[in-house]
Computed example of a mutant assay.
Amino acid sequence: MPSNPHFYIILNQVAGTGQGAHVWPKIKAQLNQKKIQYDLQLSRYAGHTYQLAYQFAKFKYHDQLLLIIGGDGTLNQALNGLYNAHRGDIPIAYIPCGSGNDFARGVGISHDPIKALEQILAASTPTEIDLGYYYDAIKHDHGYFVNNVGIGFDANVVSTTNHSRNKYLLNRLHLGKLAYVSSLIKVFMHQDAFDVLVHAGPNYHHFKHGFLVTTTNHPYFGGGVPIMPSATVNNHQLDLIVIEKLNPFFFCYLFIMMLCGRHTRYRAVHHFEGPELTVQTRTLEFGQMDGEELGSRTFDVHFSVQSQAFWLNRE
């Protein structure tokens, strides 16, 4: 950590249904106590974090440390803002206060905001951590992700939950996971199997009954579910898991095994790993990136790995 750090802070107050606003006074008190300089910017609407990070990278960066306080979606927007300003070299510090916090779980950042700040302040040099990069040849769009990109079941759950009338109320009551449980049941009954073509290394793999197709940067998705227990953020590889559609009883059993990290041994579960992966679908399927909806569409997505510097002491 520089001897006199100066933070440029982007705060998402509504992250985690208001958790961002709740933790900021504690962070502010610690920064003031340690006489650390900072500039504060509030992310006020969807896409605002992207704009703030882009403007910071283009016009305001003078050896300041970019500190993001928010959820995984906030971090995703900040990273994409930096990279679209061609400043992926700018290190990022992160204090998680979202509803899922899968990235923090995957890289070893404390969920306690004060401890997360201590991890940042204890760092003397940035730590390189893998990010995922995708390019969709059909829509010609691209982006960076910290957690995962999902096609099919998990993306459909994200979309169904986001548009649920009960989501906001349940989040206010700190029962947000119930909204996902309700969506899981509803989506399972309506999500059809679909054709998936996977290109991993020199080989192509065709699945006629794809159901859940997730490319991940670390073990977790959905708020702590270990979708791929062996994945790690420092091996310069991405992991792709394809789960074929099953009958309801075996799917429930497999989901329980997934919670225990023991699902990958079953025949309906297929795992691929590599620095580059490609996924193609022929039918309209829901997609999600770090919990943000990509819409319903066909996909021809090429994945690769990019390193990003984070101010973080992981010891």
Rank of each mutant, 00 (worst) to 15 (best):
N76R: 06
Q19I: 04
T49S: 14
G132R: 02
D141L: 02
G150L: 02
P219E: 03
C260R: 15
V305M: 07
G132A: 04
H205A: 11
L238T: 03
R262K: 15
F56I: 02
T161F: 01
I90E: 09
R87E: 12
Q119M: 06
D300M: 05
G108N: 01
S110P: 08
D300N: 15
G224A: 03
V242K: 09
E273Y: 08
M289S: 15
Y266A: 13
N203D: 15
L197D: 11
G224S: 03
F211A: 06
R105W: 02
Y61C: 13
K208I: 03
A116Q: 03
H6S: 12
G291H: 01
F56L: 08
S296L: 14
Y180L: 00
S304C: 14
L169Y: 06
F255E: 00
D72W: 00
C252K: 09
F103M: 01
V146P: 05
V196H: 04
I36P: 09
D89M: 07
C260I: 13
N166R: 08
F59T: 15
L11K: 05
I68Y: 10
H270K: 15
M289D: 07
F7E: 06
K139P: 00
H140E: 14
W311N: 06
K34N: 11
G261Q: 05
T74E: 10
L277N: 09
I185G: 08
H302V: 13
E273T: 15
E128R: 09
S183P: 11
L212P: 03
G71S: 08
L259Y: 00
R105K: 12
N84R: 11
I129R: 04
I95K: 02
T214K: 00
P5M: 05
V187N: 04
I68H: 11
V196D: 10
D39M: 09
G223I: 00
P91D: 11
D130V: 01
L238I: 03
E276W: 04
V305A: 10
A179D: 06
Q33V: 02
T298D: 10
F272V: 14
N148H: 11
F7T: 09
Y133I: 07
L66T: 05
L11F: 10
E276T: 15
I256G: 09
M289H: 05
A200H: 10
R44A: 13
Y134N: 04
G132E: 03
G143D: 09
M258Q: 10
D195V: 08
Y144S: 09
Q51I: 11
R265Q: 15
A21I: 02
Y50M: 07
G73M: 03
I151E: 11
G73A: 06
H62A: 14
S3L: 13
H163Y: 09
F56D: 10
S110E: 03
T278L: 09
N4D: 12
S183C: 06
K115Y: 00
V181C: 08
K26S: 15
M258V: 06
